[in-house]
C-alpha cells in the first residue's frame, strides 16, 4: 500500500536518511523503531509532504506522492499525528474533529457568510459525524471543552479522533505513546487495533518496545539514517544487528 523507495535526506552536510526502502502492506500495523536521531520523524515529515526529500520516492497505491504538498495528501487518504500533539488549542474538542472533516465539506465563502440552507445541512452532517468519532475514541464527554486545556493523554486521543475524521486509508502515528502512563498506553493499544479493524493501515514510530512488539505485524529498524533490519516482531527481537545497536547505545 505504502512503498518507500530509496529515500535519502540531507540537511546541509548532514545525512539524516540514506537510501531507505521498505513497504507497508494494506491492513498491517507497521512499527518503525530506532534510537534517537535515527531519522524516523524525518521520514514521516517527508511522507506527509512537510519536507521535500533529497532523493527517492514514496508511493501510495502505486502513485508517487513524495512531492505532493501536505494539504492534498489528506484527500488521498493519508493522515498523520504528531509527536508533540498539534491540536488546535483555541478550538473546542468537537471543532477539532469537525476540522478533520474539512475535506468532506464543500461550502465556499459566500455560502458560509449567507448561511445558505445547504450550508446549515452540511454543518449538521459533519457535527453528527464528529460526535461519532469522539465516541469511537471515548472522549464524547469532552466535546465542548477547549482543546488547549486538555490533559496530555486526552489530547492524544483527540488527535487520533481528528485524524480518523479525514477518513484515512493509512495513518502515520509519530510516537503515539510518548508521555502516556501505563493505563493510557494500554488503552492506546486497544484503540490502534480498533483503527486497524476499521480498515485503516497504521504505521507508527515508537520508543515503547513493549507496545511495538505487542501490536505490530511488521517492524522496520532504523539506525543513524540507515535501515538496519525489517521483519516480524520475533525476527527483530532475535536480529543480531538490532541487539548490537540497542545494547551498544544503552
Amino acid at each position: 500500500m505504502l512503498e518507500i523507495r530509496g529515500i535519502t535526506q540531507r540537511f546541509g552536510g548532514i545525512t539524516a536518511l540514506e537510501d531507505i526502502s521498505f513497504s507497508v502492506a494494506k491492513g498491517d500495523i507497521t512499527g518503525i523503531i530506532g534510537p534517537n536521531g535515527a531519522g524516523k520523524t524525518t521520514l514521516f515529515n517527508i511522507a506527509t509532504g512537510i519536507y521535500s526529500q533529497t532523493k527517492g520516492q514514496i508511493f501510495l497505491d502505486g502513485v508517487d506522492i513524495s512531492r505532493i504538498p501536505a494539504e492534498r495528501l489528506a484527500r488521498r487518504g493519508l493522515v498523520r499525528t504528531f509527536q508533540n500533539i498539534e491540536l488546535f488549542g483555541t478550538l473546542t474538542v468537537l471543532e477539532n474533529v469537525m476540522l478533520g472533516l474539512h475535506t468532506q465539506s464543500r461550502c465556499g465563502m459566500l455560502a458560509c457568510m449567507t448561511k445558505m440552507p445547504w450550508h446549515i445541512a452540511e454543518e449538521r452532517r459533519i457535527r453528527t459525524k464528529a460526535m461519532v468519532l469522539l465516541e469511537f475514541c471515548g472522549i464524547t464527554n469532552l466535546a465542548d471543552q477547549v482543546a488547549g486545556s486538555l490533559p496530555f493523554g486526552k489530547g492524544r486521543l483527540l488527535e487520533i479522533a481528528r485524524a480518523m475524521a479525514t477518513a484515512p486509508r493509512i495513518m502515520l502515528m509519530d510516537e503515539p505513546a510518548a508521555g502516556l502512563n501505563n493505563r493510557e498506553t494500554n488503552e492506546l493499544a486497544l484503540l490502534i487495533r480498533k483503527i486497524r479493524d476499521a480498515g485503516v493501515t497504521v504505521v507508527l514510530v515508537e520508543h515503547d518496545m513493549e507496545l511495538v512488539m505487542d501490536i505490530c505485524d511488521r517492524i522496520v529498524v532504523l539506525n543513524l539514517g540507515q535501515k538496519l533490519a525489517e521483519g516480524t516482531p520475533r525476527e527483530i527481537q532475535e536480529h543480531p544487528a538490532v541487539i548490537a545497536a540497542y545494547l551498544g547505545e544503552g
Binding site: 506527509t48 512537510i50 504538498p69 494539504e71 489528506a74 493522515v79 488546535f88 483555541t90 458560509c112 479525514t166
Partner: peptide, 30 residues
C-alpha cells in the same frame, strides 16, 4: 456576514491555521 463566516467551516479552518498551520494542512486545509 462576518459572524456567520467565523462560525462556519471556513472560520474554523482560519482559527486552525492560526493555532497550527502544519496540522491544518495535514487535515487537508489548503
Amino acid at each position: 456576514l462576518a459572524l456567520n463566516l467565523v462560525h462556519s467551516r471556513i472560520g474554523r479552518a482560519l482559527r486552525a491555521i492560526h493555532d497550527s498551520e502544519v496540522a491544518a494542512r495535514v487535515m487537508g486545509v489548503n
